[in-house]
Design a protein around this nucleic acid. Structure first.
Lengths: 332, 332
DNA sequence: CTGAAAGCGCTAACAT
DNA sequence: ATGTTAGCGCTTTCAG
């Protein structure tokens, strides 16, 4: 930008060291000098050069975050929580969006590595772990988001089994006994966990049964609607009185199908969704849903970065608990 | 990270200049040396130090983006488009989320300024313009997102008047004549523009009238539902046969209200929304909506950054055109 | 409490 | 085609 410490120093009639001290709000500089320096900074339009600072001091104020999907509210809320936590230490969070493309993921990871970020928080498919490990050896830790732990990194993940459990427990607690479960594919760890939790709740109950598990290939509204039609097609004896949907989108699709066939929710069938997306509360029948503590996940991840920098050897695997948000769709 | 060009050079038995050339894929280095250097890079876990590069070469590969709301799909898609465009020049886009807080906005702007980013793309409320202008003097341009132009910066904005016009023209084209318009507050420039465009379409039509403008304080589903109830309460002669909603959320609320009172869309009343959010297509009556070219906005902004760097004096104010996505909610 | 000076790791110009 | 070297702008001793 042209104007550096030197120019400011010249104009203020002090040394660069003094200017540096003023600019960084450090210790004891005579008030008179402080004023003169500030005047010069303003007049000259001086902007600190972070590249030079980072080079010299070897440390950055930036936490890098690599996320697979910018339009997924889950991730944007995680990012928000991370940002809040970083602010407390006077750091900032910069987000790179890999758009689910491994190639972009690598680019962002490299960029943060080369920038010598404080650390990287990443929800990854796994192919950059070696690189991240290399960075770690150089003192730049990475934190994994999600349940697929790797021994080399600390991680934070929501407890999906717990989520599945409390969702179904709630349905059972409101008097339902004939539970259907909708979601998939089960090769996704988070969904398998939710299913396991759901089954666990049913096993512990007295008298509730898993009527059917609809293993879907995706979790869209359309798929939910299709499953809904299937459920409606069931003869009365085989129809569930409650369904646990593994995402809110699925739940919304189910509701649309039930609504189209005058099956009233929650009287004839109770529904619990998962994620508590914004829409959940504003549906014509507001949706009971499992809410993930998204901002806490982000905050914990940032905390783990600092913890890891302080103590590079210990690894922590944190788990955060989802909560049930009860609304009309599951009322007794 | 400890290991630098020097260590690599030592191990490979070449000079730092040569290593630099290899690492940056430059020109003519003997294949034998290339191999030796690459071996050393791998063995030592060398990672380029971007701070040093930026300091020395005075230029960065990072485009900074400051957005007010990470969970708004509009902005995440703009960011995606920006990212795509940046990739073409081998740059990357890093996003800072101000969460609508001026204080954070300033922090991100400062951070990008200090990092000497290639430029800043920002959807701002306006209080950082002076700072951005200062950066511009130092050779780091900023591009404004949105209709509020400032003479000092180039900008790119969707043409909201056009959006309003094509939305209402479509409604009129499908035979509707009694148009209601829902949205607000009109102090927001984008909404005022949409209204102006809508009115323009009505003025040009033969026989269509603006029955009523519902000026709302926000644009949520709940508000849409409330307006819907009002519309239902109208005596038959005053009830519109079409409504242009300034956001899809409003449109969804309207639909919920109409649905609850057995008013069938589109037969009794046609609806056009705005934004084409993901939900629009999966509603039980899919919603006709005005789609903003979000990714193009982001791409143009990144292009403008480069244009501005090449020619710091000219300012450009670009406008991009929304399109109508026709679905069931507005069928004749 | 302030000034002077030595680099941080890299690039690019120049010399070989 | 490769090696040498002078800084980029800053922080941080170390003297004064």
């Amino acid at each position: 930008m042209g104007v550096g410490l030197r120019e400011v120093a010249a104009r203020a009639g002090v040394s660069v060291g003094t200017v540096s001290n003023v600019v960084n709000g450090r210790a004891t500089v005579a008030q008179e000098y402080v004023d003169r320096v500030n005047e010069a900074v303003l007049a000259l339009g001086f902007v600190r050069n972070d590249a030079a600072r980072a080079l010299r001091s070897g440390t950055s104020r930036t936490v890098g975050m690599v996320l697979p999907d910018g339009s997924n509210p889950f991730y944007s809320n995680v990012a928000l929580g991370a940002c809040n936590a970083a602010m407390l230490n006077n750091n900032i969070v910069l987000v790179g969006n890999s758009n689910n493309e491994p190639e972009r993921e690598v680019r962002y990871v490299d960029a943060f590595g080369e920038q010598r970020a404080r650390g990287i928080v990443i929800a990854s498919t796994g192919n950059v772990y070696d690189r991240l490990d290399q960075f770690a050896k150089g003192g730049m830790p990475s934190i994994l988001l999600g349940p697929d732990v790797d021994e080399r990194f600390s991680s934070v993940a929501p407890d999906d089994a717990l989520g599945g459990r409390i969702g179904v427990e709630h349905l059972i607690g409101t008097g339902r006994r004939r539970i259907a479960i909708v979601g998939g594919p089960m090769s996704l760890r988070v969904l398998a966990d939710r299913l396991a939790g759901a089954n666990q709740a049913i096993a512990k109950s007295n008298g509730a049964v898993t009527l059917q598990v609809f293993d879907t290939t995706d979790r869209t509204i359309l798929t939910g609607r299709r499953v809904g039609e299937q459920i409606i097609g069931l003869t009365a004896g085989f129809r569930p009185d409650a369904v646990f949907a593994m995402t809110d989108l699925l739940a919304i699709g189910l509701m649309q199908a039930f609504d189209a066939h005058q099956i009233v929710v929650p009287r004839e069938i109770g529904i619990v969704g998962y994620d508590d997306i914004d829409f959940a509360s504003t549906l014509s029948v507001p949706l009971t849903s499992i809410r993930q503590p998204m901002e806490i996940i982000g905050a914990r991840a940032v905390d783990l970065i600092e913890a890891q920098r302080a103590d590079p050897v210990t690894r922590q695997h944190m788990t955060v608990e989802p909560t049930l948000v009860s609304r009309a769709s599951s009322r007794p």
